[in-house]
């Protein structure tokens, strides 16, 4: 069973439908129990880092997700779901992140370009990584995916970077280590490429 963690931020309907294309057993859940029983966990996130983290903590689901991380279950973060896996963010300096990955989330530095980074951008995929599931298996070189964000993660350990993109500067587009992987872009909004990425997670 794949649990999509619903801690009250944003609309998860498309996320749920996209994962349900590849599995009959996808549950959008607000229950720690369901997360504990799940084989795989998806952690979405929309909006501001601070709001997301606060809601996540208050929902009581944070501990269940951290248990999944520690128990080596595949966990996939999406967008702010990626960002809260880091130690903190410039966007909400007083709020700590989960600290699964070392490093901070910073505002995109793209002089002359519009913020947010909104739209389709191509990825450069890093082949040398240590992840249990290869999200980019059977995906063409430099695929286009859909981004909407103003902040991005700056990992301390460069080897966790699975893919980058360029928007004024190099943008961290996907990270991962062992059982935990995350994308800054929205696979559920990235057409056929995005669906292939989701399929890789579901079947990997």
């Amino acid at each position: 069973m794949i649990a999509i963690v619903d801690y009250g931020v944003g609309n998860l309907y498309s996320v749920e439908k996209a994962f349900a294309k590849f599995s009959d057993d996808v549950i959008l859940t607000q229950s720690a129990d369901v997360i504990d029983k799940a084989d795989k966990v998806v952690l979405p996130g929309v909006g501001a880092f601070g709001d997301c983290m606060k809601n996540f903590k208050a929902s009581g689901l944070m501990d269940a997700v951290m248990r999944a991380v520690e128990n080596n279950k595949p966990v996939m973060g999406i967008c702010v779901g990626l960002q809260i896996m880091f130690e903190g963010s410039e966007e909400s300096p007083d709020i700590k992140g989960l600290g699964i990955f070392k490093g901070m989330v910073r505002k995109i530095n793209a002089p002359g370009l519009k913020i947010p980074h909104m739209g389709w951008n191509s990825l450069t995929i890093n082949e040398n990584t240590h992840v249990d599931i290869n999200l980019f298996k059977n995906i063409r070189k430099n695929p286009y995916v859909y981004f909407v964000h103003s902040y991005h993660a700056m990992p301390e350990d460069k080897f966790i970077i699975l893919a980058t993109s360029v928007y004024g500067e190099e943008i961290t587009a996907a990270v991962g280590k062992n059982n935990v992987i995350a994308t800054q872009f929205h696979p559920e909004k990235s057409g056929d490429i995005g669906l292939s990425i989701i399929k890789n997670f579901v079947e990997g």
Binding site: S14, K17, A18, H186, E188, K189, G191
Partner: peptide, 11 residues
């Protein structure tokens, strides 16, 4: 909106 979100995976 509901049907589109369930079937077409672009924004």
């Amino acid at each position: 909106a509901n049907d589109c979100a369930a079937q077409v995976f672009i924004p």
